[in-house]
Computed example of a mutant assay.
Amino acid sequence: MKDVREEYHADGLTEADLHDDPLAQAQRWVDEAIDAGLPLPNAMTLATVSADGQPSTRVVLLKGIEGGGFTFFTHYDSRKGREIEGNARVSFTMFWQPFDRQMIVIGEAHKVDEEESQAYFASRPYGSQVSAAISPQSQPVTREWLEAQVEALQQQHPQAPVPKPAQWGGYRIVPTEIQFWHGRPSRLHDRFRYFKQADGRWHRERLAP
């Protein structure tokens, strides 16, 4: 692995390229990744912290940038849900390799209202509704048990909608800091940080790569 090298060739990032609102800039980068047909353009690596200070990460899917934050959906009683319940401070990273772009968000995660979770759950494909409804996420199970639970629920609800489980819903991560990183040749990358000031306004600065 020490010999693996990759040079970055994309155009750089300047302050003139950036939107004054980091959420609008984030939306721009996500939209460009979607429009380019990149694989999983909304994938984000989410970090949470346990009560004893142990961080853990996993990839989840960003489902919206609205209401002043970044929205994703999951099981509230999963490991990440339990950790968010104990410590709402989280971070996530999105990386779009073909564009040499990376975005880092730091903030706090809060549950969205039940109506929003219900609406999104109802919009999911039937198979995804079934899987979410039967899964005790993050708990030990066998494949046979999972498949039996799927079959039983499909018999009860042979088509959508499937009732949304109470322990499933959305979180909105409200940011206090957002970084935009853009690869440059010879590792002299462009990196900008926005952080929220006490008066609620965003301050932007360039960071060393």
Rank of each mutant, 00 (worst) to 15 (best):
G107I: 06
M94H: 07
F92G: 04
S91K: 03
R79C: 09
R79D: 15
P98R: 00
Q102R: 11
G127R: 00
G86Y: 02
I104E: 09
P98S: 00
W96T: 12
D100P: 03
E83Y: 03
E66P: 04
S91Y: 02
R89P: 02
K80L: 11
T93G: 05
A88H: 13
G69E: 06
K111A: 08
A122G: 04
E116D: 13
S123I: 08
G81H: 09
G68P: 08
T57K: 01
V90S: 01
Y120R: 02
G107V: 05
D113Y: 06
A109W: 00
G107H: 00
F121Q: 00
I106E: 05
H110V: 08
E85I: 04
E115N: 03
G81Y: 07
I104H: 10
F95S: 10
H75K: 00
G107R: 00
I65F: 06
Y120T: 10
T71V: 15
T93N: 08
A119C: 04
I104W: 07
G69Q: 04
G69L: 07
V59D: 06
G68W: 00
M94I: 15
D77F: 08
K111N: 05
G67Q: 00
F95G: 05
I104S: 11
E66C: 10
S128T: 12
G68C: 01
Q118L: 11
K111I: 06
R79P: 05
P98M: 01
Y76N: 11
I65K: 02
G81I: 04
R58T: 14
I65C: 08
